[in-house]
Write a protein that binds this DNA or RNA. Structure first.
Lengths: 214, 214
DNA sequence: ACTCATTCCGACCGATCGGTCGGTTGGTCG
DNA sequence: CGACCAACCGACCGATCGGTCGGAATGAGT
């Protein structure tokens, strides 16, 4: 069957994506050579170019796969019911969980925001990335608006609050050695993740809560 | 006078640092070539190598200059009196101001956390960076502890809260086009900076405040 | 006038970059 | 069987990488 590679062994394409994700997260787009990726997979360089016709396309594919994983969990978490406050709590927590489970994600995500030069912004891959990001930001924005008009969150500029909130969610898991140095322990250690999550949720809950009305 | 270049014209060395800072912030360490830096300054490549003996040293010099600027403002802001809550408010605000005044700073700072591979961690420059970071983190940590034991802030893990707070402070000004897309306007526009600052201070004030005691 | 250090440059080095090319497998069809 | 095709490879391309070297200016000190 050519249409169903239902084997347990991951395809070469997936293994290339895995290796590339790890390397791009650690050293950035221009810090990684295609030879390095190929060696990591155990293939020749030209074989990598057989699966992805350019470095930019490989990078875009890595980003899209990550965004898809995050979007998937995020919208599922958002779809589950509850008041805006409950839903915010749950989906911020779930977001942290995804980032904690895949140590490469936060870093690569942050990097891809900086290196927009590298991405072929106009190509179809750039479009896909753009849509995936929108698929995450838009429902989040709606949730905040909903909570404010329901009187659960204090009134504030939704876009500014969103931009602010992305920081503490993504940064800790992207900080790598720096974060380890601050905490004294591995950021991805289960106990640290739990601690980080509880502190962040405390901060968000109280920081966004409407002051007078309950 | 060889020891006092007190002219108004910036020295070649400083102009190299300026150009390199701009480029490193936009494209990262390995995304920038020494030729590019030299062209930006209007010098030959070998002239740049006359002032900085390697690319890594140039990068470290850029980082140190930025950290020094931030540390300077930060410790000055911290030294001024007031209760812990007042001092936290003021120095977070001042921190935002520095980052807003120099659009390259936040991005380069974040990048340098990711690219610890590129920095010669064991060399004297690496040491200088390390100390500059410590010079900022340590007084901040002390401030938080002080506020907690004084009962002004709610009790929490100082290190985790610190790691969390760095996110919303640095990220918005590092987000570049992404931030612009979220806000709909330039992140470094004076009005947006004001808005961002007020939202962040609201969030921090309420989010860290002790719940019961006043 | 002679020296000496600073600043700058063009030419060059070996290595590596992203990417191409021609060709060889091995498996799946008709 | 022969045709086809995805997967893979080694060899190679021009360009660029970080870095070196010898020398040409310039100016201050003596």
């Amino acid at each position: 069957m050519t249409i169903a590679p239902l084997k347990n062994e991951p395809s070469s394409r997936d293994r290339i994506l895995d290796v590339a994700e790890e390397l791009f997260a650690r050293r950035g787009y221009s810090g990684v050579g295609m030879k390095e990726v190929a060696d990591g997979v155990g293939l020749g360089k030209s074989s990598v170019f057989h699966h992805f016709k350019s470095k930019a396309e490989l990078y875009a594919a890595v980003c899209i796969r990550i965004l898809a994983r995050i979007e998937d969990r995020f919208v599922r978490s958002l779809a589950a019911g509850g008041t805006p406050a409950v839903r915010l709590d749950r989906c911020v927590g779930d977001l942290l969980d995804v980032l904690a489970e895949h140590p490469t994600h936060a870093r690569l995500l942050l990097r891809s925001m900086f290196e927009d030069d590298d991405l072929p912004d106009d190509g179809p891959e750039g479009r896909a990335v753009y849509e995936a990001v929108g698929g995450i930001l838009e429902p989040f924005s709606s949730l905040l608006k909903e909570g404010m008009s329901a009187g659960e969150f204090r009134l504030a500029s939704v876009s500014h609050v969103m931009l602010l909130l992305i920081g503490p969610i993504v940064f800790p898991f992207a900080s790598g050695e720096f974060g380890q140095q601050v905490l004294g322990k591995d950021v991805f250690d289960a106990a640290q993740v739990r601690r980080l999550k509880s502190e962040l949720l405390d901060l968000v809950r109280v920081g966004l809560h409407a002051p007078s009305a309950e």
